[in-house]
């Protein structure tokens, strides 16, 4: 198939970017979107031009590396599908396709379609863990976990940290990602002792990274390749409110009688 591509080219974070037009002919319908880009790059290289930089690794929809917006949609038009798993038969011969980086201020462009998503790592570092030193774990079957909770936790844990939610959100909000992480651990008995601390530190870090707030557009859930539900956002709001109230009635500190 023959395509007209408008690809975002940007040298680095400090320079202005712009779309570059390419006519690409003879693309196989069976190739994936990234293979189509490989093909574009091979033609560019053979002309001595700079290939388009884009992030990718597993090409199986699980590592969360690939990150590009295709015709205005992070990961492209197909639901529950990462860019690497999107196949060209989704498009028609003669289509025009706009390819842009994930757009959000906390994800500055590094080059072309590559953005810096390290803010996600920092949110996780702020508290996205259960403090269990190596070797100190109790017997695995000592605490049975209600299947429903385990499944709910799994659904949240399916997040691949790709950042499409942020890229899709008109506010550049990271609520879906953060909420998925908070819910994964918060739904399990192991995660209870640090539950309140965790939600407060992760939300604080999320805000410090200058992500926008959530006004419940729901675009994140539409773009999420793993189908993470905004129900986890509601849940995180609840947890955050509870955690704050909990601090209000905390028994730590002294009291005076007179």
């Amino acid at each position: 198939m023959d395509l007209t591509l408008f690809v975002w080219r940007q040298k680095n974070a400090d320079t202005q970017g712009a779309f570059e037009r390419h006519e690409l002919n003879g693309v196989s319908e069976d190739s994936s979107f990234l293979e189509m880009l490989d093909y574009l790059n091979e033609t560019l290289v053979s002309k001595g031009e700079a290939p388009v930089a884009f992030e990718h690794d597993c090409r199986e929809g699980i590592c969360g590396s690939c990150s590009m917006s295709i015709n205005g949609r992070p990961h492209g038009p197909k639901r529950l599908t990462t860019a690497c798993q999107l196949h060209m038969r989704t498009f028609k011969d003669g289509d025009t396709i706009y390819i842009e980086p994930f757009r959000a201020r906390p994800f500055p462009v590094v080059k072309d379609l590559v953005t810096d998503r390290s803010a996600f790592d920092r949110i996780q570092r702020a508290g996205g863990y259960i403090s269990v030193p190596t070797g100190s774990a109790p017997e695995a079957n000592a605490t049975p976990i209600e299947k429903e909770h385990a499944d709910e936790a799994f659904d949240a844990a399916a997040c691949i940290g790709c950042g499409a939610c942020v890229a899709a959100c008109p506010n550049g909000s990271a609520m879906l990602f953060t909420a998925a992480k908070v819910a994964h651990l918060g739904l399990l008995p192991q995660g209870q002792p640090e539950r309140h601390e965790r939600v407060i530190s992760m939300v604080t870090q999320m805000d410090d990274e200058n992500f926008g707030g959530c006004t419940n557009h729901g675009e994140c859930q539409e773009a999420c390749p793993k189908g993470i539900s905004i129900k986890y956002i509601t849940r995180m709001n609840r947890d955050y409110i509870k955690a704050t109230l909990q601090r209000g009635v905390s028994l730590r500190g002294k009291m005076q009688a007179q």
């Binding site: 917006s69 015709n71 757009r103 201020r105 200058n210 926008g212 707030g213 419940n216 729901g218 675009e219």
Partner: peptide, 27 residues
């Protein structure tokens, strides 16, 4: 305040606008 922060977090939109669940009301 929120609207300002939200706008700052999304300085640049996409060339092709395509929404699925955001709507005239929410936007």
């Amino acid at each position: 305040l929120l609207a300002r922060a939200n706008r700052a977090a999304k300085p640049e939109g996409y060339k092709v606008k395509s929404y699925r669940s955001a709507n005239a009301a929410s936007l």
